[in-house]
Design a protein around this nucleic acid. Structure first.
Lengths: 128, 128
DNA sequence: ACAATTGTATTATATACCATAATACACTTA
DNA sequence: TAAGTGTATTATGGTATATAATACAATTGT
């Protein structure tokens, strides 16, 4: 479990999931939390790759998916920027939440739990 | 999306996840629901593979993981049986639920949601 | 105009996982 | 002994992930 400080951001990379997915998640989280001001320019593909000790292609893949999600805006020769639109951030947050909920519902149902018992489980869960 | 009836059980296989995982899930679900009486003998590795149009190795992998989970008991030359212990079924159900909850909590937190808002989302979710 | 810095694309290589296929072995029962 | 169990092994192929090296395209600053 590697922990890497990059400016204001903290990246935690391991091999439990693809690296590019972890990079995506951590940007999403930091944007959703306001840890990265909207409109900020990100590190370049090459620079972030260097910091994270990861291949530039891996960072590029993450940036491209974040752009497809409308969280990033990129311009050749110019750089990559976090969107300036709070609305897009909200939209993405909602859609990711919906997805998380629906995958939870699927899996908890698939082991034979009812809605009420599932809610109880969440209420009892630790939330640090 | 292939739907295959095998005796009392219905298998739905697709390519969204590994086949062996889907076989495992569906056995877990049917055992948890009581769709398979405890102590029942399952189809042999070869026979289930034939029914599902899947390689015997794939079924064997599923059976082996289910045995590690204490849901299946196998005896060479004899066959594979669903555990007779309701306690083991309950234990596994609890542990799978814990895992589902914790992975939901992780992902919903990672997009910046609080516990209360997460519970609201679950309450509003469809549960068919 | 030019150099430096951006994002982007391509090709090759290595590894891991998933699935199939064919075959053989080990054990139990009828 | 034959038939039906689970189990193990080896080979092959496809896909996803990650790295590496290289080149191209667009923008900016000097």
């Amino acid at each position: 479990m590697d922990i890497i400080q990059v400016g204001d951001l903290t990246f935690q990379l391991d091999y439990s999931k693809p690296l590019y997915e972890q990079i995506i998640s951590q940007f999403r989280f930091d944007i959703a939390q306001g840890n990265i001001p909207l409109g900020t320019r990100t590190l370049s593909v090459r620079d972030l790759a260097k910091e994270l000790k990861v291949n530039p292609n891996t960072v590029m893949r993450a940036y491209q998916e974040l752009e497809r999600d409308n969280l990033f805006e990129t311009r050749r020769g110019h750089g990559t920027f976090v969107t300036s639109s709070q609305k897009k951030v909200d939209e993405l947050q909602r859609s990711l939440a919906t997805q998380a909920v629906s995958s939870f519902v699927t899996s908890i149902k698939s082991i034979g739990f009812t809605k009420d018992s599932a809610i109880t489980l969440i209420e009892e869960a630790e939330w640090n």
